[in-house]
Write a protein that binds this DNA or RNA. Structure first.
Lengths: 212, 212
DNA sequence: TTGTTAAACGGAGGGTGCCTCCGTATCTTC
DNA sequence: GAAGATACGGAGGCACCCTCCGTTTAACAA
């Protein structure tokens, strides 16, 4: 065997650029037109040929999945940035709000995702993991700063968030969720002495003991 | 105005028959091929022309909805029949199991329904109402017979059922749900004296007080 | 029965989107 | 700058969508 076997070329610049363009276009087109939107429309909007689109994403699901992964990663990065904010509680609140926005702009995408999640439970695992970590880092910081109670796990919070957004077909759901989120975050704050009336629920694993 | 105004013709027999055929075919085709399955395939399987299909169900969603409504009604009727079974607990158990089967055969349909529910919350309301009543009638009978505890509402039960079926993409979900259902039904039974260790949760509205 | 007529049927056909294939253009490497 | 690898674009064949309308059939009246 020759020794160029593992020699790797740098990926072509135009390929990288086009891939990104298609993802961006897909995000817009699917949000507006739902999961049945035409792939040719996506290609046109991205300013690439239909062949290019298919080379990068052989199936419609591949494209859905890539768009979604990218967004989850962006949310994850947002959490990373918010880590440096001064007020940890506010940081958490902002991240949660971004999530609501995320769901809101996905009108059409949600049905597409239902389809995609079915065929790729790996994707579901990936996003859960990523989001849990994001929320966990923000939560831990707020707890460490003594501003939030430590008996709520990131999974709890994520579940509450997802649950709240789940019924996002009723009219006015978004403002409703935002309101509930505020109430929720307020509830998460460390209670001023004498205001904690209910402490019946048993706490989740404390923040301090969770890994990283 | 002439007096034939409200004179109504009997609906044509072939129309009624064809409508039914299309529904049956759609159920099979969508279950197998998912929500994107070809409507032409449905028409062919039903043995009718494509035009006929479109006359009865102008849009794909109309067809989804009609199929689903029909199934919900069948589950509802099944409950009606089971009312006359000797053993009320067994009757309830059977109905729940039928539900699992219902979900299982709907592989492809579930994504379709996600789409349909978004555009028709009336449909969601209809099915919730119907299923709640079905489960309620079975539950009431078991409670009245003194075989089941009365602190669980039909809504609770339905929610538990739906929740259990929600993750129906994991491998082996079905047997898992069936097992959980059995455990659940056992838990619903009136506990033999001395075996009731936990009674902490506050009861839902008692069965006796619910209407009908 | 037979005639009349409203209602339903079927499928051709124009339009759109899907996806493959391959000649051409462009980038990387030497 | 040349060579070769890689990516590009879009024409084209196919499948499906949905409409439209000439033909068929069932319901009703006589």
């Amino acid at each position: 065997m020759d020794d160029h076997a593992d020699q790797i070329r740098k990926p072509r610049a135009d390929a990288v650029r086009n891939r990104e363009r298609v993802l961006e276009a897909a995000k817009l087109v699917f949000s507006a037109g739902g999961p049945e939107a035409s792939l040719e429309a996506v290609a046109k909007r991205a300013g690439v040929g239909i062949g290019t689109l298919y080379r990068h994403f052989p199936t419609r699901e591949d494209l859905f999945e890539a768009v979604y992964r990218r967004e989850v990663e962006q949310l994850s990065e947002l959490a990373e940035q918010l880590k440096n904010a001064k007020d940890p509680v506010d940081a958490l609140r902002r991240w949660l709000r971004s999530n609501v926005e995320f769901v809101a702009t996905k009108k059409g995408m949600s049905a597409a995702l239902a389809l995609t999640f079915q065929s790729s439970s790996e994707l579901a695992a990936f996003s859960m993991d990523r989001l849990t970590k994001a929320i966990g880092s923000l939560l831990d910081r707020a707890v460490a700063a003594g501003e939030m109670r430590g008996d709520v796990s990131p999974e709890d919070l994520l579940r509450a968030l997802v649950g709240m957004c789940y019924m996002h077909d009723q009219p006015g759901w978004q403002s409703s969720v935002l309101r509930m989120l505020d109430v929720f975050v307020d509830g998460l704050r460390v209670q001023p002495a004498g205001r904690s009336k209910t402490r019946t629920a048993k706490p989740a694993k404390s923040a301090a003991k969770r890994k990283r």
